[in-house]
Design a protein around this nucleic acid. Structure first.
Length: 217
DNA sequence: ATAGAGATTGCCT
DNA sequence: GGCAATCTCTATA
């Protein structure tokens, strides 16, 4: 069985057993997300996002809080755009930015406290052919999912996913799963990317050595 | 009402 | 490295 065989343009797709235990993947339970985003975020490194014909391993994340975090979309009042952030944990929060891009988060925190973890980058595991089709601007494999909007494009996610649970129901929904790969013991840490306010919180984490992070540190 | 910034990306020089 | 693309929201009037 070939995993990740792509229609790639000059890429070297590592053949592989990219999954730890592909046949033993389990969805993350809702209670996993009922803790503050800065606690959940580093634990999501190494987990899987499984979508329509595709799967990626999470290699870079950021945490966003609520009224206490000036960099968060939930810092001010609830709006149609950030509505999902104020809902129950364990659901997707997908927002539109710069008039053209989608970015995906999972809502995290105790009920009633808005917060989320942004998925900034992933390592393509399955369905690379599909990802190449959805990402015509990509030239190398590391261009497929090495940024929050690239990731959404590669997985085929848009705003219609926002507010839905991260635990797949009929298989047509995007889910978050664990294949037994542990998060790094010592993840890379830095301040968040692309923000002005909130730079005092080092709430960005990545898998050290991953070629798929959005930017080297 | 209007202006400006934004959890980004890709093309241009 | 500069900057355009172009939706959502906030600040200011």
């Amino acid at each position: 069985m070939k995993i990740g065989s792509g229609v790639g343009r000059g890429t070297s797709v590592t053949p592989a057993a990219r999954f730890h235990k592909e046949d033993r993947t389990l969805p993350l339970p809702e209670r996993f997300f009922e803790r503050r985003p800065e606690v959940v975020a580093p634990e999501l490194l190494g987990k899987l996002i499984v979508g329509d014909r595709v799967a990626v391993r999470i290699v870079e994340v950021e945490a966003y809080g609520g009224a206490d975090d000036p960099a968060s979309h939930a810092f001010r009042r609830q709006t149609p755009r950030n509505e999902a952030m104020f809902g129950p944990p364990g659901r997707w929060y997908v927002y539109f930015t710069y008039g053209m891009h989608w970015c995906m988060n999972v809502v995290c925190g105790p009920r009633g406290e808005p917060g989320a973890v942004l998925f900034r980058a992933g390592e393509p595991l399955r369905g690379l052919g599909e990802m190449w089709k959805r990402r015509p601007a990509a030239r190398r494999e590391i261009d497929l999912c090495s940024g929050p909007a690239k990731l959404c494009q590669a997985i085929g996610v848009d705003g219609s996913l926002s507010g839905l649970p991260t635990q797949a129901i009929a298989g047509s929904v995007v889910s978050i799963a664990d294949d037994g790969t542990p998060p790094p013991i010592t993840p890379g840490v830095s301040t968040r990317v692309g923000i002005s306010a909130g730079q005092s919180s080092p709430w960005r984490w990545w898998v050290p050595g991953s070629q798929h992070v959005s930017r080297r540190q």
